[in-house]
Design a protein around this nucleic acid. Structure first.
Lengths: 236, 236
DNA sequence: CAGTATCCGATGCGATACTG
DNA sequence: CAGTATCGCATCGGATACTG
C-alpha cells in the first residue's frame, strides 16, 4: 500500500536516498567504481553479503538507471557497468569515503576485519609498471587472522595481478608479515609503511630490490589518493 | 551475533555507510542542514516517519558524533545541532540531492506527494527582506490535494515565517492556486514560475505589487541554488 | 512541547541449498 | 561462473497511548 521503500517526498535528496540508502548498495557501487564488473568479482568485495541479495540489488540498480549489463560475450554474462548516472556517483561515494576516514571512530580499529576484503582491495592497486616482464610473487602472512585467512599470495605476470588463497607454487620474491589491522591502517592512510617497517610492525624479507620497491609497488587505497586532493571537495 | 548493522569492513566507505545508509537517516540530516533543530521541527520534514524511530535515529547520530544536543534552555530541550563532522556531510548530501534531481526518473512525477512537506520546505525559503515591516499573508490552495491538505497559509511578520494549516484570520495579500505537482516542480527547478503563470498552471491573485514580487519572495530549494554552482562538485 | 512505551503486522535481510 | 529458491527471524513501520 505504501508501495516499496520510498519516502513519499519530492525532495531530490529523498529520491536519491531511495536508491542509495539501502543496505549494501553503496558498497556495491564502491566495488564497481574500483573496477569490478562481474558478479563474482563484486561479491569478492562484499563477501558477507548474501548472493541472493546481491542479485536483487543489481537488478534494482539497473532499474534505477545506475548500472547496466554488458552484452554477454559468448556463453557467459558480460558483467555490469556504470551508466552515466552511475559515474556521477563516483565523486559522491569517494567523498563519503573521505568523510568516513576523517570522522568515523574505529574506522581503523575494528576487531573483526576480513583479510580477504583487504587483499582483494590491494590486488587492484599494484603498480605493475615497476615490475619486470617476468613473474613476481608476493606472499602476505597475517599473524592475527584465523588459520584459513593467514596466508595470501599476489601473483603478478605480464601486467596482470591474481589474488591466490593457496600457494601458487612459484618462488616468492617478497614475504610480508603483519597484522591485518596494521596492514589495513596503512592501506587507508592512517599509518605509514615506513613507520611500521621501522618499528617492525611489518616485517619484509626476500629480494632486496623488491623490499625497496614495495612501498611504490603497493599503492594505497583510492580514498587516500582522493583525500590528498580533497580541498576541491568542500565547495560549500 | 553479527552485531548491529555493520559490514565488517575497514573500508571508509563502509564505515560511512554504516552511519548514513539506514532508512530515514539522510532525510533527518537534510532537515538539519536546512535549518531544523528541534524534534518536532525535524519531524515536520519527515512526517511519515514514526516518532519513535526518529528518536532512535537521533540517538544513533549522536553516538556516531554527527549530532549533539543543545543545552536545554530553561525547561524545554534545546534541540539538536550538527557537529563539525555533521557539517562536513553538508556538501555530500547536497551533492546527492543534485544527483537525484538530475538522474532520478519521476523525481518530479510522484503521484502521492505530501503538500505538507512542500510547504514546510518552502516556508524556510521566504525572503522576508523584500516585505515591509507589517504583516504579510500568503494563501496556497492545492486543487489536487485531499481536503485537509488543500489550504495553507504563510504568515510573515517581523522577519518571521509561520506555516499555518488553518486560516489565521488576517487579510490575505496573495492567493496562490496550483497543483502540488506544479508547485513542487517549480520548487525543485524542473519548471519555471514564469511559464506556469503564463500558461495558468498557477494562478496568482491579490495585491498587484505582491504578485510582481512573488517570484523573488519565494526562493527555490537550496538544491537548486547549489546545482547552479555545481561545476565545482565534480572534482573527479 | 519533546519525547517514551508497547504491540503488532509486514518485509528486508541473512543462511542454506540448489540450478543451468 | 552466475545466479535462484526457500525459509525463518530480526527489524522496520504504523498505531495508539502515555509521561514530564
Amino acid at each position: 500500500m505504501t508501495e516499496d521503500g520510498g519516502y513519499g517526498q519530492f525532495c531530490p535528496v529523498a529520491k536519491a536516498a531511495e536508491i542509495l540508502a539501502t543496505r549494501w548498495t553503496l558498497l556495491i557501487l564502491r566495488e564497481m567504481i574500483c573496477g569490478s564488473s562481474r558478479f563474482n568479482e563484486i561479491h569478492r568485495g562484499v563477501p558477507l553479503m548474501p548472493r541472493a541479495l546481491l542479485s536483487k540489488r543489481l537488478k534494482e540498480l539497473q532499474a534505477a538507471g545506475v548500472l547496466e549489463q554488458n552484452p554477454p560475450d559468448g556463453t557467459r554474462s558480460g558483467g555490469y557497468r556504470l551508466t552515466a548516472a552511475g559515474e556521477e556517483l563516483r565523486p559522491i561515494i569517494i567523498s563519503m569515503g573521505i568523510w568516513g576516514q576523517r570522522w568515523v571512530e574505529s574506522a581503523a580499529d575494528g576487531p573483526d576485519w576480513d583479510a580477504g576484503v583487504l587483499m582483494w582491495d590491494m590486488h587492484r592497486r599494484i603498480d605493475t609498471s615497476l615490475l619486470g616482464d617476468g613473474r613476481t610473487v608476493l606472499q602476505f602472512e597475517y599473524g592475527d587472522a584465523p588459520e584459513e585467512m593467514r596466508l595470501w599470495w599476489l601473483l603478478i605476470e605480464t601486467g596482470n595481478v591474481d589474488l591466490c588463497v593457496s600457494d601458487p607454487g612459484f618462488a616468492v620474491d617478497l614475504y610480508v608479515l603483519a597484522d591485518v589491522q596494521t596492514m589495513a591502517r596503512i592501506w587507508i592512510g592512517k599509518d605509514s609503511l615506513a613507520r611500521a617497517v621501522d618499528e617492525e610492525d611489518i616485517v619484509l624479507h626476500g629480494d632486496a630490490d623488491m623490499r625497496r620497491k614495495f612501498s611504490r609497488v603497493l599503492q594505497l587505497s583510492p580514498i587516500v589518493e582522493a583525500s590528498k586532493q580533497s580541498s576541491r571537495l568542500q565547495p560549500f
